[in-house]
Measured scan of single mutants.
Amino acid sequence: KEFRPGDKVVLPPYGVGVVAGIAQRSVSGVSRAYYQVDFPGSRSKAYVPVEAPHSVGLRKAL
Rank of each mutant, 00 (worst) to 15 (best):
S28P: 02
V10G: 01
L11R: 00
G29R: 05
K45A: 12
E51D: 13
Y47Q: 02
R43Q: 13
L11S: 03
S44V: 15
P49M: 05
F3T: 00
S31H: 08
V48P: 02
V16H: 11
V48Q: 01
R32Y: 07
D38F: 14
E2Q: 11
S55W: 07
V37A: 00
P12I: 06
A20P: 00
R25C: 15
V18N: 02
E51N: 09
L62G: 13
A23C: 15
D38R: 12
A33H: 10
P13N: 09
H54A: 10
V16Q: 11
G29K: 03
R25H: 08
A23E: 12
Q24T: 13
E51W: 12
Q24R: 11
V16N: 08
P13D: 05
V48D: 02
P53K: 04
V16S: 06
P12W: 13
S26K: 13
Q36I: 15
P13R: 08
V27Q: 07
G57N: 04
H54Q: 10
L58W: 03
P53T: 13
K45N: 06
S31V: 14
L62I: 11
V18Q: 03
G6Y: 02
K45D: 03
V16P: 07
G17R: 00
V19G: 00
S26G: 04
V50F: 06
P40H: 10
Y14N: 02
D7P: 01
L58C: 05
F3R: 01
R59W: 04
S28G: 14
K45C: 15
P49D: 08
K8Q: 10
A20V: 14
L62H: 12
G57L: 05
P5M: 10
V56I: 06
V9S: 02
G57W: 05
S44I: 15
L58P: 03
V9H: 01
S55Y: 08
G15Q: 01
F3Y: 07
V9I: 06
S28V: 06
K45I: 12
P5W: 04
Y14A: 01
A23R: 13
A23T: 14
V56F: 12
G21T: 06
A61M: 12
H54K: 06
Y35D: 00
P12C: 13
I22A: 01
Y14H: 08
V50R: 02
R59C: 10
P49S: 08
I22P: 00
L58F: 04
S55D: 10
V9F: 03
Y14R: 03
R43C: 15
I22E: 02
P40N: 07
A20T: 13
R32F: 07
Y47L: 05
G29T: 02
H54F: 09
P53V: 13
K45G: 04
S26Q: 11
S31Q: 11
V37E: 00
E2R: 11
V48K: 00
S26P: 08
Y47M: 04
V18H: 05
V27S: 06
L11A: 02
V16T: 07
R4A: 09
S55L: 13
V18L: 06
G41C: 14
L62C: 14
V19D: 00
V48L: 03
L62D: 14
A33R: 11
S26F: 13
P53C: 10
G29W: 02
V19K: 00
P12E: 08
P13V: 05
H54W: 12
